[in-house]
């Protein structure tokens, strides 16, 4: 049998995500890929993979899985939960540390506790055939991942490596800061002129809350309505992940990675690419405040973030593998 993880219980929304699907937005296919690019990148680094190797992304709560391979190496990242191993030697591995598990081991990742999404990477990556040049799942159109859908009980998710050696494990020290209270930086535009000055002030001063209507397409926010200057419909134009569109209700929606490629609501601002993962991590009920920066600052922030990820990877602590069976 091919090496795999068997899904004993999938959790509310578990999909395969990896490299985004780039090059098809002109025919209406969104990029997809991880809500939290930073955590996927680091989870993959913990098991020695390339940054966007296919991994499992789960929203709000993790899955229960069984190891169907002689040995696998896993790492969880993006939340404060643990990999709870139920085997002859039950134990809990915190997020941010790799672990080698053996055939028949069953593990559970419960509530993500503080985070809206998290990632489980396996050494070698999941063996998912790319669809339109990407393994990432886009559920609405049934593209990518395992059968184009979220994982279900009994699914067998194949792993691209037959087994793994009992070599050193890796750990992120200190664990990454999820920055759940950080202000989200935005660049104003492209349609700031469709809002009153008061509307722009509201966006930049109010405290918003992630509503229960938050999914991979967009995070609807609760909070003060943002005032339009005139009509709230525009002739459709392009949108990007991070676009903050404001429909007639005045309640902003931050478009996320499965966002439609075009839209007919004015966009007051765009979340900078460095901060989009921070939005992706915020659970319903968590607060969100915005602050405006220039494009130049946004570009510097993204480069600084990539440099920091590289430093974190260079500093991974290595320690002996606990399971040499």
């Amino acid at each position: 049998m091919k090496p795999a993880l068997k899904i004993v219980s999938p959790g509310p929304h578990t999909t395969v995500q990896g490299k985004p699907r780039i090059g098809y937005r002109d025919i209406g296919v969104p990029a997809s890929g991880p809500l939290d690019r930073v955590s996927l990148h680091l989870a993959n680094a913990l098991v020695g993979n390339t940054p966007d190797a296919p991994a499992l992304e789960f929203l709000l709560q993790g899955p229960v899985c069984e190891v169907v391979a002689p040995a696998v190496r896993l790492a969880l990242l993006g939340c404060a939960a643990h990999i709870e191993v139920r085997s002859h030697r039950p134990r809990a591995i915190p997020a941010g540390r790799s672990v080698r598990l053996l055939q028949g081991d069953v593990f559970r990742i419960g509530s993500l506790i503080d985070s809206a999404c998290a990632y489980l990477a396996v050494e070698g990556g999941f063996d998912i055939a790319p669809v339109l040049a990407s393994p990432s799942t886009y559920v609405r159109a049934g593209l990518g991942g395992l059968h184009g859908r979220r994982l279900e009980k009994g699914d067998i998710v194949p792993i691209a490596r037959a087994t793994v050696e009992a070599c050193d494990e890796r750990e992120l020290v200190p664990p990454p800061d999820p920055r759940h209270d950080a202000r989200i930086r935005v660049v104003l535009g492209p349609q700031t002129d469709h809002f009153t000055d008061e509307g722009v002030r509201t966006l930049l001063s109010a405290v918003y809350t992630v509503s229960p209507q938050a999914d991979r397409m967009g995070f609807r926010l609760d909070g003060p309505a943002i005032q339009h200057a005139h009509d709230y419909n525009i002739v459709s134009d392009g949108v990007v992940s991070g676009s903050i569109q404001v429909p007639g209700t005045g309640r902003p929606i931050v478009l996320m990675v499965d966002n439609q490629t075009t839209g007919g609501y004015p966009k007051i601002a765009t979340v900078i690419s460095a901060d989009l993962p921070l939005v992706g991590r915020r659970r319903p009920g968590r607060s969100l405040r915005f602050t405006a920066v220039s494009v130049r600052e946004a570009e510097q922030a993204r480069r600084a973030q990539e440099a920091e990820i590289k430093t974190q990877i260079d500093r991974l602590r290595r320690f002996p593998c606990e399971n040499r069976g």
Binding site: I22, R25, S236, V295, E299
Partner: peptide, 20 residues
């Protein structure tokens, strides 16, 4: 990649390889 619409073209670029 680029996305033509009714009235505009959206230009997507990689911020790690170029700048606005």
């Amino acid at each position: 990649e680029t996305v033509p619409t009714f009235r505009s073209v959206m230009i997507h670029y990689d911020p790690l390889h170029t700048e606005s």
